[in-house]
Design a protein around this nucleic acid. Sequence first.
DNA 1: AAACTGCCTTTACGTAAGTTACGTCAATTA
DNA 2: TAATTGACGTAACTTACGTAAAGGCAGTTT
Lengths: 268, 268
Amino acid sequence: MHDRHSSQQAGVPYTGGGQLMPLSTIDRSQVDPVIRRLNALRTLSTEARTSLEYAMLEGIQRAGAGEDLISEGDPVDSIRLVLSGWLCRYKTLEDGRRQIVNFLFPGESCDAHAFLLPVMDHSIAAMTPVVYTEIKRARFESLVATDRSLAEAFLCETLVNSAIQREWAINLGRRVAFERVAHLFCEIIERLRPVGMVEGNSCVMPVTQMDLADATGLSVVHLNRTVQELRASGLIVLRDRTLTITDLDALKDAALFSPSYLQLYRRG
Amino acid sequence: MHDRHSSQQAGVPYTGGGQLMPLSTIDRSQVDPVIRRLNALRTLSTEARTSLEYAMLEGIQRAGAGEDLISEGDPVDSIRLVLSGWLCRYKTLEDGRRQIVNFLFPGESCDAHAFLLPVMDHSIAAMTPVVYTEIKRARFESLVATDRSLAEAFLCETLVNSAIQREWAINLGRRVAFERVAHLFCEIIERLRPVGMVEGNSCVMPVTQMDLADATGLSVVHLNRTVQELRASGLIVLRDRTLTITDLDALKDAALFSPSYLQLYRRG
DNA sequence: AAACTGCCTTTACGTAAGTTACGTCAATTA
DNA sequence: TAATTGACGTAACTTACGTAAAGGCAGTTT
């Protein structure tokens, strides 16, 4: 279904003579979402920020839509951090049924700490063209070993991810289709907002209805029906790959959405 | 729905004069499931085992069936480790719909590391009478700070828990009722086996069908129908609170069950 | 311009699962 | 012995959701 790892070095511009430019003069803003997110979860020391920025800028890669970054069964020998684009974690059954178990947005981590387990229990795919950075296992281990705030930030990242997955479980198990899709849209908007990808209550919706169906545990047809219902109810506008939530409070009510599980407000 | 914390000191026998017996003479076996599990996830140093044993034996508590150990919104100021009994993590919607997002068995940890987040995003309830041990935040932090193997074991515990939740997501989203219940039974047997709670392919099934329904995202009625189907198919016998899987391979096939996500085989 | 492709949309129909309402039975309690 | 309770079991009915098949439409490719 998905092809693998045709990623290439990207993002760190060459001076022309084959040498990397010094860090001060190249574009550091592309790794900013990661720094911002980690720093919101756990205040980072200045040294931690700098050393992490260095490590990130050296491993920048790209992936095309549909490409697997890592697949179930693969050993985890590096960690990947999302710089731009939409990704998903998913699992499949032998007969092809697929369930997306989480989305991954800029600033988030694909597999921080997962490398304590022998192999991946799930796959991660790019749903759009994606820019990410890859830090090798040893490098990452020495980064977190030398700075406690960094280690804790990555741990928080893992824990928030876990909390989101629990919310998805109740979404799949106990909400009806209408609530389920409404909930997903609420979550997407609220997760994209801190990354600056929301204007008003609008964001791009670059994924297919098939993907949305796999995320909500519905068939494509029923997902489409449900999107029509949401449109008809006047809660959302979805066209030209843009989602606009016209009445966010009403949508949250309909979805039984309460955002605390996202841990959007910092603690330490 | 559940009442709170009527737990009392238990498990550490008094000499009669109000003093604790020395550790060497009291029953250490009750904390054994935790040591065994953590050690299987990550080989523990002897010192780590001893200091953890001490900490555990001092905080032993009991809870009755139906009682919440901790509820959504509570701050996390200690960690709890299960010594005996069945517990569950669950979330509820405002209108009372409940989804169990995971079971907790002896040896497992309720909230290791969760205390990096401000408050619980879900609740934990005893489904049977339960014995557990509670280690205060500061004590736990100093334990893991002084021993790397212990810190890594608890992190692994968190990661395995996360992997199980992903499998539950695909169970809820993509398996039909028959497969779903079959999968849950497979998982229960395989998680209880390393704790010595399985004989042949039989174990106690101390929870109500309501609980099983909340774990599989079904109504009680439909769960019951599905259990009847499983019985009729000859795959299981379930009576007198005892589950016997008569053909485990066939049940695993029917459930599309593959146990790798449970990480039953050690790595480090 | 024709053909093709990917994605969205719609219809018609069947089935799996929810709901409501009563059963039974065994274990308490009076 | 009767009444009470909690869990399991069953039936009749309703509904939400899945499946199959086909049409629309914009963006490519030739």
